[in-house]
């Protein structure tokens, strides 16, 4: 087995391809901000989640702290059950309020966490008791029109 220039070219090709993958992972993608390991799960029930989707972001004071991992319908109370995966660097008090908010006027929906003043922190598997549902535009317009009609009488 001797080394040939062909090997050099193929080596350069493979290295270039892998380098491109690394660039895609770190410069283009979010692997550099990826926190693979530590996260804990929280749950919350919302009476209406609007257009919230799995993988939607969870923010507290505007900082990304986690992602929505699962959405299902809780058939006991007929409410939406949202499972959230929160970065374990961030702890939240027991009386934290979860709100479904919209980024911008037409942007995607996310969950905002407003921490309360409790000294006991939420642990993995806990539930956020106080929640505020998404604002559904149709409902709001309906209410507005209804109020208008009431007022006009």
């Amino acid at each position: 087995m001797e080394r040939t220039t062909l090997d050099l070219w193929v080596g350069m090709f493979v290295v270039g391809g892998l380098a491109a993958l690394v660039i895609l992972a770190f410069k283009v993608g979010n692997l550099s901000t990826y926190n693979v390991s530590q996260s804990y799960q929280l749950q919350a029930n919302f009476s209406n989640i609007g257009g919230l989707k799995a993988q939607a972001s969870i923010k507290s004071a505007g900082v990304l702290v986690g992602r929505v991992t699962g959405i299902s319908l809780d058939t006991k109370q007929y409410e939406a059950r949202v499972v959230m995966s929160i970065d374990s660097r961030y702890q939240f008090p027991k009386d934290t309020i979860g709100k479904i908010l919209t980024s911008g006027l037409l942007g995607e929906q996310y969950i905002g966490l407003d921490p309360g003043g409790d000294t006991v922190m939420l642990k993995g598997g806990d539930e956020i008791k106080q929640t505020q549902s998404a604002v559904v535009l149709e409902d709001m317009i309906g209410k507005f029109l209804y109020n208008k009609a009431e007022g006009g009488k």
Binding site: F13, G16, G17, A20
Partner: peptide
């Protein structure tokens, strides 16, 4: 072997 490497280089070049 070549195809994924070429596609990755294509995308990186495109970006």
């Amino acid at each position: 072997i070549s195809m994924p490497l070429l596609a990755a280089m294509f995308s990186a070049m495109g970006v």
